[in-house]
């Protein structure tokens, strides 16, 4: 019997130390707006989860700690665990519960109807489930193909070898949008350039991301990019080989100041602020928000420590402006194919 207790105790310790919960539990005070968010990786990943964490921190800064509180459950890559956390937050009476991961959708469609008084938000997606008569879910997404296109154009101007490498996780969501936009940007500038794309089928395997980048460098790639939280592995290899790097989701310049040219940075406050305002007014869902270059939810952040050719920077800014103005736009077909549409 002793052994059984020991094992149970061990598992309990382990279970407690696994998901790191921070933030204070909600108390029933009506003047404070409380947000809870569930993310698949840590809020310090310099990528997807951090972009959300930073946005909530910025909103708290702006609205004040007396008026806005948020709690975050990180590392919930396992969807079942995330679903339990979402329910828990709804039970605790949070005003807005955010499921920050496209993989959480199938859980949310079950959970949201059980808490008709709670507002939920789910991203990245455009689906608010209104067609399933669910009215308390907001959707948000990043049109990451826009920044991808801009970075692609600049990459094409910077490559000397004519080979560019892209490290992706799984071909879905904003990762696919970014990669497709990037490829289209390269082709827009120069159709001759070869773009090597490797979806490594993992969001977490840094070693595989590193070796994928290395394989591209061995194929003469001198400009690289990549998306999702395993890219620090790839950035390291790019730095070793002195290849250039373009980032997305968060500003990655601090990881390799010598080689990061520019990053597409997500600013989720652009989607979150209107959602919060509408929830405060009593509308609990039904609308989809998108980060774009036009609404500045997507920002092209140049690395100040990198001496970028002015001509390249001007070309990047020009293309970004063309997207803002609607002269260049993107259509995404039902099968996911991206087409670039140029206004006459």
């Amino acid at each position: 019997m002793k052994k059984v207790y020991l094992v149970v105790a061990l598992l309990l310790v382990a279970a407690i130390s696994l998901p790191v919960l921070s933030g204070s539990p909600a108390q029933a005070q009506d003047d404070v707006f409380r947000v809870a968010v569930v993310t698949p990786s840590t809020g310090t990943d310099l990528a997807f989860s951090q972009s959300m964490y930073d946005a909530l921190a910025a909103i708290q800064e702006e609205r004040g700690e007396d008026a806005f509180e948020f709690a975050i459950s990180e590392n919930l890559f396992v969807v079942d665990d995330a679903a339990a956390a979402l329910r828990d937050y709804a039970d605790q009476g949070y005003d807005l519960v955010i499921a920050h991961g496209s993989q959480y959708g199938s859980s949310l469609v079950e959970i949201a109807p059980d808490y008709p008084e709670t507002a939920f938000a789910w991203g990245t997606t455009v689906d608010t489930f209104v067609d399933q008569d669910i009215t308390n879910v907001y959707a948000y997404e990043a049109r990451s193909e826009q920044g991808g296109f801009v970075l692609g154009v600049m990459s094409a101007m910077l490559t000397e070898s004519g080979v560019i490498g892209v490290v992706g996780p799984i071909e879905t969501g904003d990762a696919k949008l970014y990669v497709d936009g990037f490829k289209a940007g390269v082709a827009y500038e120069d159709e001759e350039i070869e773009v090597l794309v490797n979806y490594i089928q993992s969001f977490s395997d840094l070693a595989k991301a590193a070796e994928a980048a290395q394989a591209m460098i061995d194929e003469d790639a001198d400009v690289l990019t990549g998306t999702a939280q395993m890219v620090p592995g790839a950035i390291q290899k790019a730095q070793e080989a002195e290849a250039l790097w373009f980032g997305t989701q968060a500003d990655q310049a601090s990881l390799a100041p010598d080689i990061v040219v520019a990053c597409q940075v997500y600013d989720w406050t652009v989607a979150l602020n209107p959602i919060i305002d509408q929830v405060m007014e009593g509308t609990l869902g039904g609308e989809a928000f998108a980060l774009t270059l036009e609404n500045e939810g997507l920002v092209i952040q140049f690395n100040e420590e990198f001496e970028l050719d002015e001509e390249v920077m001007a070309a990047g800014e020009e293309v970004a402006q063309a997207i803002v103005d609607g002269d260049i736009s993107f259509e995404i077909a039902e099968d996911g194919t991206l087409t670039v549409v140029e206004a006459e």
């Binding site: 840590t42 590392n75 977490s204 395997d205 840094l206 070693a207 590193a210 939280q229 390291q236």
Partner: peptide, 10 residues
């Protein structure tokens, strides 16, 4: 990798 991240060993 010269970097640490949660679940690095994957």
């Amino acid at each position: 990798l010269n970097v640490f991240q949660q679940n690095l060993t994957d």
